[in-house]
């Protein structure tokens, strides 16, 4: 869990939140929007919470996923066994409820209409139907405890082919894509690995251990903190494509501009 989120209860942090939200609406808001509390699962949930979750589910999810989350063919898959982690990931990143059918659900932080408590209730309710992976515990989300170098190695083997070695995303088949991981909250990164949303495969704890997942988070956060940005503008981290675009536009304009000035007769 990021330190910002931990400080969220103090009024000063609220002010800071407001300031950051105004300055960097997209990414900063994303970093603060964590959804369900760590460790959320149906166990130990109050009857009241389950009831609220059921209400929310029926109002927002049942039309596609079925009244009992049993699934509804093409419209929506069964949610049995997806776990609280999947619900939190999908709802707290604004992917669900799906505004309109498309190639894939897009991350849309500005579309999250639920409070953290509501998301937690929803997650607890879905988990109570058939249990699945829990929302990760806070200790696995602390990037400062992770080993970014090991995370990088795990990331390059398991993630870079889709999300790009700089975490900026990449194309999949038929218009699908792996989204950017920049500005994504540690909890959602973890949940995505754990639950394998949409096209993404699942990386369960036997495949990538919680420690390794934390390492991956540490690696991604180090990129976010500018570890990759050393020698100037990164041109969208597109690799040679960005370089080529620059060379053939701004670069060549500068040279030809100088050449034209050189060849023109002085006034």
């Amino acid at each position: 869990m990021s330190s910002l989120a931990a400080r969220r209860r103090s009024p000063l942090a609220l002010l800071m939140l407001l300031f950051l939200g105004l300055t960097f609406t997209g990414t900063a808001y994303a970093a603060l929007q964590t959804g369900a509390a760590p460790g959320t699962s149906a166990e130990g949930a109050s009857q009241e919470q389950l009831g609220e979750g059921r209400q929310l589910f029926l109002a927002n999810c049942a039309s596609c996923h079925g009244a009992n989350a049993e699934g509804n063919g093409e419209a929506g898959p069964s949610l049995y066994g997806v776990g609280a982690a999947a619900v939190d990931f999908q709802v707290a990143t604004g992917r669900m409820p799906l505004p309109a059918p498309g190639v894939q659900a897009e991350r849309n932080i500005s579309q999250v209409h639920f409070s953290d408590e509501q998301i937690e209730a929803l997650a607890v309710y879905v988990d109570s139907l058939a249990p699945g992976p829990d929302v990760p515990e806070e200790q696995w989300l602390d990037a400062s405890q992770g080993d970014a170098a090991n995370g990088g190695a795990v990331y390059r083997t398991n993630c870079a082919m889709c999300h790009n070695s700089s975490g900026t995303g990449g194309a999949l088949t038929r218009g699908k894509y792996a989204p950017t991981l920049m500005g994504v909250d540690a909890q959602h990164i973890y949940e995505a690995m754990l639950t394998g949303p949409q096209s993404m495969p699942v990386f369960n704890d036997q495949n990538i251990t919680p420690e390794e997942k934390r390492d991956v988070i540490a690696f991604l956060k180090s990129i976010e903190d500018g570890a990759n940005d050393q020698g100037g503008h990164t041109l969208g981290s597109l690799g040679p494509a960005g370089d080529a675009l620059f060379a053939w536009t701004i670069g060549i304009l500068a040279f030809i501009g100088a050449a034209v000035w050189l060849g023109r007769k002085a006034a």
Binding site: M161, N164, Q230
Partner: peptide, 18 residues
């Protein structure tokens, strides 16, 4: 910045970047 080689990591035939 051009070709920040640290972004890609060392070559490993089992790995590839988008």
């Amino acid at each position: 910045q051009i070709n920040g080689v640290w972004v890609y990591g060392p070559y490993d035939p089992t790995q590839v970047t988008a």
